[in-house]
Design a binder for these strands. Structure first.
Lengths: 109, 109
DNA sequence: CTCGAAGTACGATCCAGATCAAACTTACCA
DNA sequence: TGGTAAGTTTGATCTGGATCGTACTTCGAG
């Protein structure tokens, strides 16, 4: 979907709470976000963020996360990837991302 | 489902993050929780928490919220109702409920 | 004891969305 | 200039879960 890399100013706005929750409520997508959040750069190529999934299914999930304003599609080195929109999320729903990642960590994930 | 009122010690445990998100990701249920959170006593009869819904559909949603550990079925005055399990939730996923209610309030809801 | 109001249980329907396979696109590398 | 690796697109399928109507339960008021 990104011809090269989407300019940060024409990214979709972070969605409303309800849509955010919908996006995060899927186990596959939650895991994607968890891995990105764990990543130091909060940035990774697509294939690092899932396993045991058809590629087209992964694309489907990425699209939902991007449209919810959670991920930013970027180029990571040679291949495509995504960046977690930490500050935008923090602005939209302060504390949400932290609450989730901490709780997931405590669950042993 | 409650013969009279469920003893607090045999309530279902608060579910894992993923299941919590699933429970909250539905517009009807999110609104139910929002109204309860807004309520001073965090407690209300069923029918105060939704509108324009078939009663059996409402029961369905309540069941999901109870099984996720978000609500506690109780007697509110003469009729049945639910209480928001604030402290249990705060223990399980600190900050989540606050983050959501604040963001919803800022959305104008 | 019956009536009505408030929820619950059950069964049926219906649709969003999760999944996959296959074909196509792009970019990099030999 | 192929070839391969990584994603995307498209189209099809299938299932979880949201919804409703109807019947049943329970409680309080008369």
């Amino acid at each position: 979907m990104p011809p090269w890399e989407t300019p940060p100013d024409q990214l979709p706005p972070v969605a409303a709470v309800q849509k955010l929750l919908r996006a995060l409520a899927d186990p596959v997508r939650l895991e994607m976000v968890r891995r990105l959040a764990a990543h130091p750069a909060a940035e990774a190529p697509c294939s690092d963020l899932y396993e045991g999934l058809n590629k087209s299914t992964a694309t489907h999930h990425f699209k939902i996360l991007v449209e919810a304003g959670i991920l930013h599609p970027v180029m990571v080195g040679p291949s495509r990837g995504h960046r977690l929109r930490r500050t935008a999320l923090q602005e939209a729903v302060p504390g949400l991302l932290d609450a989730l990642t901490e709780a997931l960590a405590r669950e042993g994930r």
